[in-house]
């Protein structure tokens, strides 16, 4: 596989996870600092089911996503009724707990030396189709009744309740969707790199995803995807930036927060209408010339 298709595959897998974070953080205003732990659940469960129990992928991946959602339900249940800070604190603790568990349960997970021997099945095509499918689902979600309710909850919880919105329920739905999507990203990741270890899923990764969402535009899925490409693509292309990656991200986001708080694209979304218009424009321009 060439370098560029390698980079592209990794970016597309990140797009899947960032789309999940977009639902939770961009739309609903909740911050999960243990989101990468759900990616770990997806990666490890699917990897273990396939390598140790010889399950076919078509069963193992959905099983992994389902397990992550069940765990998400347990983590979310005590927190969705409380103020936003709790879900961040609880997910952060959850991330640490999962890392400890992965390090410790050596016989199943391979411990600190990681889980090896996962078959390499994620191709560029699979990554692309997955990313496209997830982005389509999420954009449908954004314009749905739950999407609107998520944005209402982010904007003003109290007013949302007064309009009959069941806030804990909406928060839970957003959380579980993001968990499912992130866990799926974990499946893609494990079957791409063929190897996972506990250090890959710390809070730094969750923080990176949140940074990508905010850099692109709080309320714009298009922006989140674009910034995923820019922020994770740039250091790959310009290798000498690699070790400064975290610092560059942080400085960029601090600049955005201070000077353009709605992110690069704000609320702008690329819709099928825009794409149509893009192809029509030359025609219109010609018509004007004739006039």
């Amino acid at each position: 596989m060439s370098l560029y298709s390698h980079i592209l595959t990794q970016i597309l897998i990140t797009v899947v996870s960032v789309s999940g974070v977009f639902v939770l953080t961009g739309m609903t205003g909740m911050f999960s600092l243990g989101q990468a732990a759900f990616m770990a659940i997806g990666a490890y469960t699917s990897g273990i089911l396939v390598t140790k129990l010889a399950m076919p992928i078509i069963v193992a991946w959905p099983a992994a996503v389902l397990l992550a959602v069940l765990v998400g339900l347990i983590v979310g249940l005590p927190t969705v009724r409380l103020r936003r800070d709790y879900i961040s604190l609880v997910t952060l603790g959850f991330g640490e707990a999962i890392t400890a568990l992965l390090n410790r349960a050596t016989t199943i997970t391979g411990g600190a030396s990681g889980l090896t021997g996962i078959p390499k099945r994620t191709t560029l095509l699979i990554a692309f189709v997955s990313a496209a499918a997830v982005v389509t689902l999420i954009s449908f979600f954004k314009s749905s009744k739950y999407g609107r309710q998520c944005i209402a909850v982010r904007s003003d919880e109290l007013a949302a309740k007064s309009m009959g919105i069941n806030v804990p329920r909406v928060k839970m739905i957003a959380f579980l969707i993001s968990v499912a999507v992130t866990a799926y990203g974990g499946c893609l990741y494990a079957f791409y790199t063929a190897y996972v270890d506990p250090t890959l899923f710390g809070w730094q990764r969750s923080a990176e995803w949140i940074i990508m969402v905010f850099f692109g535009g709080v309320n714009s899925l298009t922006g989140s995807i674009l910034s995923t490409f820019v922020l994770s693509g740039l250091p790959e292309v310009l290798r000498f930036l690699q070790s400064y990656r975290a610092i560059i991200y942080a400085v960029l986001v601090l600049l955005v927060i201070n000077f353009r708080p709605s992110g690069m694209l704000g609320e702008w979304e690329l819709t099928p209408k825009h794409i149509k218009r893009l192809f029509k424009r030359p025609k219109g321009a010609r018509a004007q010339e004739v006039d």
């Binding site: 609107r148 309710q149 904007s155 003003d156 007013a159 309009m163 919105i165 309320n219 609320e267």
Partner: peptide, 19 residues
């Protein structure tokens, strides 16, 4: 207390959505 990030129509839709 209107919802920021939603259009005028979507603000009203939020009150319909739970039903």
């Amino acid at each position: 207390r209107l919802f920021k990030g939603l259009s005028v129509l979507d603000n009203v839709m939020c009150a319909f959505d739970p039903r």
